[in-house]
Design a binder for these strands. Sequence first.
DNA 1: GTCTATAGACGGATAGAC
DNA 2: GTCTATCCGTCTATAGAC
Lengths: 223, 223
Amino acid sequence: MEIDTRSRILDAAENLFVEHGLDATTMRMITADAKANLAAVNYHFGSKEALIEAVFRRRLTWLNEQRIAALDALEAEAQGAPLKPRQIVESFFGVAIRLAASSPSGKTFMRLLGRTYTEPTEFVRRFLAEEYAGVIARYNAAFFKALPDVPKEEFLWRFHFMMGALSYAVSGTDALRMLGPIDDSDPEALYTRLMSFLIGGLRAPLPEIQSQAVRKPRVKRAA
Amino acid sequence: MEIDTRSRILDAAENLFVEHGLDATTMRMITADAKANLAAVNYHFGSKEALIEAVFRRRLTWLNEQRIAALDALEAEAQGAPLKPRQIVESFFGVAIRLAASSPSGKTFMRLLGRTYTEPTEFVRRFLAEEYAGVIARYNAAFFKALPDVPKEEFLWRFHFMMGALSYAVSGTDALRMLGPIDDSDPEALYTRLMSFLIGGLRAPLPEIQSQAVRKPRVKRAA
DNA sequence: GTCTATAGACGGATAGAC
DNA sequence: GTCTATCCGTCTATAGAC
């Protein structure tokens, strides 16, 4: 309780958001948890919506700066040569896994971010899109250069699939335990496992996509 | 408007849930959309919570029965021999992609299901875990048999990652458009793309997981 | 089965004292 | 900056007429 009210509110909100969702978390729950007064949220942030943005911005801005910095370092070292796909994947997704592994609150935030990626709420989507725009552009360029043989559209889908895998990787144990008894306590093992999977998917043989007009029906098997 | 009130409510709820989320969707929105009276939800379903379960059960039970049936067919044909990983992946994830491709409401449902997988709400998680228990057991067994060289824990993680990729694959365009201009109108192409990626990830070289006690710090690169 | 009306709880936000 | 008290809107759910 040494830290100031504003930070305590952010911490409490972060925890409650991941546990109950943005909507189901009330200001009363947050302020009770933060040992602050109900009115404190509006005093410090202005509104619940602004609080949500502050919770994300606090860590997401940093996260994406780290990603850019990692790419800068790799590209400086490569001196204009294309990077290896593995390097790019590791710097983009590795930063996220590292954040999740660095502290309990880092893990909490990554779980929150993973679920929020497909969040339906309008202002959250708009906000995330803005926060990501810069990094995405940089990484797309690096990937395109590293994988000249992969059509851009194919790559964008694979990037999207990789984001899905990351999201589930950090989403916590709830969905995972459904599958079977599993140990998710070792972030290093998680990092290694996720990287193998992502690289395997990214470098998979290219599928033959037939143009939609010509193609004849498929996916009928297995009634 | 030829169909009965109960079905109209289910359809309206499905659409609104995926658009706004479970919590933010109100009974008033649902009944207005379904051209039914506000009291109709409680008359037909008992409560909002029961309505949510009904929306999921309507399609999820069918979906998982299809998956079981697809596996039954493959195993009957194989006469005791292990299946190919690709066959298993195609039957589990193919059924989902096919449902998404079969109709607008199928697509809506799969988007809803994908995001709900990591849903924080307690009763939804419990409900989904029950609905999935049977299929998961069957598919785990088939995969274990097909991939005797892959440690079970490694496989469970890869299955989890694959679910994440599927979730994003059907999650709709919101998260995807963030990445770049992309066409998601061709379900057949999506099916093909996702399968390549999933098989690539599933069959990726096994990572070397060092035991947690011995391991020395890694993931330091890329400051 | 469908409707109106309303109960009863809880949400975010704010005014104003300290 | 922090607090109490409260406004006002919206929510789910239900009672009871038709």
